[in-house]
């Protein structure tokens, strides 16, 4: 393993686990909103579907075609926002993007898993891989407002 550890600091165990076997991948039969995020520069694509009730996110599913960072980010995001009010999820999106931009991890419980992605900060060309699912989430939440599912 010599060599793997020193070059692979970005690819923490949690990221690798979620990239290999995401817990929230797939397409549900019923959902309330969906949105797609894509990065034309690299071809990464995230298709999000979510259920909503009473102004809060129920569950999030994603179909992600992309790199390990993008898949893991989508999956950890699905964990992090499930059950949260829409406004709180949008606030988290901003906090996540700020973490990637700055490298500084927010000192709050809901970032205990998301912090695994803070290392992306060091790789400027990869920032978009981590933030793409959150952009798709914002788009989906905007749609829930328009369709009235946001409550």
């Amino acid at each position: 393993m010599s060599g793997a550890a020193d070059i692979g600091d970005l690819y923490q165990r949690l990221i690798m686990e979620r990239a290999r076997a995401p817990l929230h991948a797939g397409r549900p039969e019923r959902f309330d909103a969906e949105a797609e995020g894509d990065n034309p520069m690299c071809g990464d694509r995230v298709h999000l579907r979510l259920s909503c009730a009473a102004g809060a996110i129920g569950e999030v599913w994603h179909e992600t075609r992309g790199c390990a960072i993008c898949i893991a980010s989508a999956d950890l995001m699905a964990d992090a926002v499930a059950g949260r009010p829409r406004a709180a999820a949008e606030e988290m999106a901003g906090a996540f993007e700020a973490m990637v931009a700055s490298g500084a991890v927010p000192d709050r419980a809901e970032f205990s898993a998301l912090r695994a992605l803070s290392g992306v900060h060091e790789y400027r060309s990869r920032h978009r891989c981590a933030t793409l699912p959150w952009q798709a989430l914002r788009a989906a939440l905007t749609k829930t407002m328009e369709t009235g599912h946001g409550g």
């Binding site: 070059i7 692979g8 970005l10 690819y11 520069m41 690299c42 071809g43 990464d44 992309g66 790199c67 390990a68 960072i69 790789y123 060309s125 990869r126 891989c129």
Partner: peptide
Amino acid sequence: HAHDVATLLDKQGIAVRAG
């Protein structure tokens, strides 16, 4: 994914393109 390949090669000083 090719991007992960490129990032991990870059960490070893090897410049390739991916996409």
